[in-house]
């Protein structure tokens, strides 16, 4: 790399390196896959449990999913921060985006439950925001579409009263909005081109 450079070559080198640096994001697929699977299972467990005992509100699966997901995310985040080769300012923005989402989610959850309402729809709609923005920041279209899917699912859940259909819509949004983009992102992070 010690050969003389023309101004054109210098500019091309700068552009190429900056472009590479902008694509240096932390590995995020773990979070989408973990939360996607846990929340889908929580929704299915709630639905099954409600069929067995329809008189009681069944929040336990959500509590378990939240605790397990939180613990796994904290463990993975700490492990990754020790291994990370590069610190990209966009990573910091994505982290704050998700942190603010979790705070808003907990506030919506508690205030809605205190008022005796169902937080499922507002949380589904809210989930679209960080998913969509993360996809835009990373320029990763499956996550952008995943965010849009959460919005579509949230609106559809509002329009249908049947619990079974709402469950199906939520699970579909989780699978297509979190799990599928998570798998595609993992393939990208591992350097595997989609088939």
């Amino acid at each position: 790399m010690d050969t003389p450079m023309t101004p054109e070559q210098s500019l091309r080198l700068i552009e190429s390196m900056i472009s590479q640096a902008k694509q240096s994001f932390s590995r995020m697929s773990f979070y989408f896959l973990t939360w996607g699977v846990l929340l889908t299972l929580a929704m299915l467990a709630t639905q099954v449990w409600s069929g067995v005992d329809p008189e009681v509100r069944h929040g336990a699966p959500w509590g378990v999913a939240g605790a397990v997901g939180g613990a796994l995310s904290a463990w993975y985040g700490a492990r990754q921060s020790r291994k990370e080769e590069v610190l990209n300012p966009m990573d910091r923005i994505i982290n704050w985006l998700w942190a603010s989402f979790v705070i808003a989610l907990l506030l919506v959850l508690f205030t809605t439950l205190l008022a005796g309402g169902d937080p499922g729809i507002p949380i589904t709609l809210m989930t679209g925001i960080p998913t969509f923005l993360t996809g835009q920041i990373m320029r990763f279209r499956p996550l952008v579409l995943g965010g849009v899917l959460f919005w579509v699912a949230g609106v559809a859940m509002q329009l249908v009263p049947e619990a079974d259909v709402r469950t199906a819509l939520y699970c579909a949004a989780m699978v297509l909005g979190y799990i599928v983009p998570g798998i595609l992102l993992m393939r990208k992070e591992n350097g595997v081109r989609p088939a």
């Binding site: 790399m1 450079m5 080198l13 190429s16 390196m17 900056i18 640096a21 080769e85 590069v86 990209n88």
Partner: peptide, 23 residues
Amino acid sequence: LHNQLRLAIVSLLVSVEQADFNH
């Protein structure tokens, strides 16, 4: 800066907060 490798290093560091040797 008018050296390919030094310019590449600085160009990479312009867009990130920090990067390690392996990166």
